[in-house]
């Protein structure tokens, strides 16, 4: 019994009796607790998923990342069989700006 209640008040409060629940109440509650429709086929982990703002942001972020990665993978593959143009890719073109080595010698 908490200290703050003096004996006189405590005795009065104790006189207020409340009966225990009847067995009928218990049975009524158990009878009304019916299986939830579809709950058996939904796994527990799925039932626990509830909408939360941070989950939505994470999903949007993942979608954007996926889109970006998808776009980046659209770069045309380099083919070793196709010869690059001389002016852009040969050693002399890059260093000296000439279209071929003969021009440099001349």
């Amino acid at each position: 019994m908490p200290d703050i209640f003096d004996r006189e008040l405590a005795a009065l409060l104790d006189s207020y009796k409340v009966e225990e629940p009847s067995p009928e109440l218990m049975e009524r509650i158990l009878r009304r607790a019916q299986p939830r429709a579809g709950a058996a086929v939904i796994p527990l982990w799925a039932q626990r998923q509830t909408f939360r703002p941070h989950s939505a942001f994470a999903l949007i972020g993942l979608a954007l990342l996926g889109f970006w990665l998808g776009s980046a993978s659209q770069v045309k593959p380099f083919s070793v069989t196709s010869a690059p143009s001389v002016s852009t890719l040969t050693l002399d073109g890059v260093i000296l700006g000439a279209s071929n080595l003969n021009e440099v010698i001349l």
Partner: peptide
């Protein structure tokens, strides 16, 4: 949560 009525009866 898995609709175990015995567990529910015990808790209630």
């Amino acid at each position: 949560a898995r609709q175990d009525k015995d567990a529910y009866r015990m808790l209630v």
